[in-house]
Design a protein around this nucleic acid. Structure first.
Lengths: 239, 239
DNA sequence: TCGGGGCATTGATCTAGATCAAGGCGATCT
DNA sequence: AGATCGCCTTGATCTAGATCAATGCCCCGA
């Protein structure tokens, strides 16, 4: 836990800079900054939200669990963003568990205070809407991926999207262990491994976490990559 | 096209009843009501939104298409709700095509006017947030379904959720053709058919569009149904 | 230096579900 | 009625991807 003013006021979050001083003070009165260690579980699937979490630094990973206990990565939330505002705003139980894969820092705002502030402040509402909309679209993309593409196509498109997000058209650095990426893509680690090696015949080269893409257009063609829908979004709604 | 006042003012949409008269008049100045025939395409995947569509009566179905031309149902939007506010609010191209499966009526609001109104009016923003949040959660549920369950489990859980939505614990009426439901569940019509017949051994009875559930708890157990996450949501955010 | 545990690759098999193919059953039209 | 067109079911295969199993690699700790 730190001094709130230091963390939030100077503008790690553009959103908070935009808010009026009185509103910001109001929100922060119900808030706390928390630094958490790698591995921490922020909340469980089924919990009723008590805080809106905001990622100030680091990231959170969201996992879905089946009744049989199988667990898959659904999404990673990176600073700066809200952690599943949908659950907090509806007051419904979380559909996912949140874990922290690296030392990270979060702003916690009491759910009721957050809801009240969103209802009262158009600027905050605007930011929440932007975050929600982006997250919604990510989920839609993932569903299209799962329903319309083969495992290998998903892997190829994932690499292409990754390289674009990293602003490097012919290289991608895998953001976490291959096992996790596989579960994000809805396949096993073995299949992921095999997909990568089969894509070597489509012009990629894998070395550890680094993937070199020799012929992006060819890869895109073979994987049914669609620039319009698969391109990562530009963040014009900033939190 | 009809008289707007008749359609909207009396309160087919609770939201509009709640808005101030001046704000409502303002919005409706940039709006139009459209009655469309079954089969109409409202917009294509890749289009940039020009209107926010609101379902006044009937429904819209959202389809995702792959570059190879395969097409699957992602979601159905029923009155009263907003049709993908995420696309309109971000201004990004639609990720899905919208088609109308039955004669329906829509309110069309110019995108810019809608965005302006959302930014200016906390009540409208509240409603949009509610709709977005619900839609987000539906997408998360669908992803969990696809990644964590077998085809047969998905079918069973679908039936259970359906029967709850229809407030009838031991019966479900399929809302559209089995082929479409199959594509919503991410399987072929053949697999859907087989899943239904295999579930006959778990206490269901299928007759056309009607499915009788003899032993819901048993079905739930065998399909890994999770009351906390699979239960349809209560609509406390109403449009 | 030697283990040991976690992740990754690779091979061998198995299987859920897709695909291909053939009727059947209603609808609607003539 | 008969014919045609959609949708649905059922059966026979095929295959993408899961599962099982063995090994290698790398990092870390004693």
């Amino acid at each position: 836990m730190h001094g709130l003013a230091d963390e939030v006021a100077p503008g790690a979050l553009p959103l908070f800079r935009a808010l009026s001083a009185s509103r910001r003070a109001d929100l922060l009165r119900n808030a706390v900054v928390h630094s958490v260690a790698s591995g921490t579980v922020l909340f469980e699937q089924g919990d009723v939200p008590t805080f809106q979490l905001i990622v100030l630094a680091g990231s959170a990973q969201l996992f879905g669990r089946s009744t049989e206990g199988r667990e898959v990565l659904i999404e990673a939330v990176r600073a700066p963003d809200l952690v599943i505002p949908a659950a907090v705003l509806t007051g419904a139980p979380y559909l996912m568990q949140a874990r922290v894969p690296e030392p990270s820092r979060f702003l916690l705002i009491h759910a009721a205070a957050f809801r009240a502030a969103v209802d009262a402040d158009p600027l905050l509402a605007h930011a929440v809407i932007g975050s929600l909309a982006q997250q919604f679209r990510r989920m839609v993309r993932q569903i299209k991926n799962l329903k319309l593409r083969t495992a290998t196509q998903r892997v190829g498109c994932y690499l292409l999207a990754l390289s674009q997000r990293q602003r490097n058209p012919d290289k991608a650095v895998l953001p976490f262990e291959k096992m996790l990426i596989a579960s994000e893509l809805g396949i096993t680690r073995e299949s992921f491994s095999r997909a990568l090696s089969s894509l070597s015949n489509s012009g990629i080269r894998v070395d550890g976490q680094i993937v070199v893409i020799h012929d992006a257009p060819r890869l895109a063609a073979e994987c049914g990559f669609d620039p319009v829908t698969d391109e990562p979004e530009t963040d014009d709604f900033v939190v």
